[in-house]
Design a protein around this nucleic acid. Sequence first.
DNA 1: TATACAATGTATTGCGCAATATATTGTATA
DNA 2: TATACAATATATTGCGCAATACATTGTATA
Lengths: 180, 180
Amino acid sequence: MEQPIAMPASTDPSTNLDDISFLGRLSEALSQTIEDQTRELFDAAGIVIPVRSCSLLTALRQAGEASAAELARALGQSHQLVIQKCPALIRLGLMTQHPDPADARRKLFRLTEKGQAQMAMQDRYSDEISDVYRRLFAETGDVHAMILRTLRALKERPLRDRAAKIPVSRETEQRPPPSP
Amino acid sequence: MEQPIAMPASTDPSTNLDDISFLGRLSEALSQTIEDQTRELFDAAGIVIPVRSCSLLTALRQAGEASAAELARALGQSHQLVIQKCPALIRLGLMTQHPDPADARRKLFRLTEKGQAQMAMQDRYSDEISDVYRRLFAETGDVHAMILRTLRALKERPLRDRAAKIPVSRETEQRPPPSP
DNA sequence: TATACAATGTATTGCGCAATATATTGTATA
DNA sequence: TATACAATATATTGCGCAATACATTGTATA
């Protein structure tokens, strides 16, 4: 016998509003859903590229040849993250790594033929996927633009600035208003 | 001398649109930003609750006493995830764990006094934070509602269904149209 | 009663990311 | 030249989550 403890059965995490970071959890759910469904799409199309490494490979293709630090700068990511992703991409046969003859510190990455072929496959579906998103946005609104606006607003003025009544702890940050 | 390899310097990841999962990365950025800024807020207010465990503690408070599996069901999360979070919450002194006298399989969690005090502190700022989000949404649009709509649309009809020209691989999924 | 099954908790592994520290190499400066 | 500094790559650790496997205990059924 299961003792009937009062417990709201919210199978749907998006319905649960009694949580301070409801927006965080919701946007995370969106991110995960998109990654999963993109993975599905890639699998159906025979694309083995890790979804989270798409932008890395795109940047590498555009550069032709690049070091981890360069890729990191191009992507706005930390170079540690790039370096962490690369072994898997090499294992997948998508790119190779050579020492830079001109600078012993650097190791240059380059797409393999398979890597280029995979990127070409992705290109074949790129327009189609753009259309999918366009139709989706027409259906439910332009989430992309709105998230972008929200992100910029939060970056400009973080939650803590917006919450007047919350104590400022030690640092007594007397932030000047953004230059008008 | 740095060799000038052609490389788009996009310090801002949100500007990078030449990526198939741009929306995924963007919503992930929003999620991370919100978590970070909520952490800031909590720190300023002296709240030690892990941001990602807010909903767990809220559910536990409402239940009074609950097992990991119950909490998982209430949160719509896997019970492994709940069980993984609990040791940290116990270490923070926010809750305790007792074996259920009535069922040797179960272990019941309960908020400690400190846990209740911390939740009360969170309550004190809850309205304020709600207002912050209300004002934010008035400024940039109701992201929450729009993400919710998008999420439901994607759940109803995943990307792969929406991308007509992409091969269906083996399973030849002949999904019937959603009952009209 | 004996057996199968369900529910619960636990451990392990792996992925993705952040943060930190360290070694190596190149560059600039004293 | 010698020294300090910057850039690069690497390793390590930790967090959060997913997935799997497993042991234990309770429940239902033969």
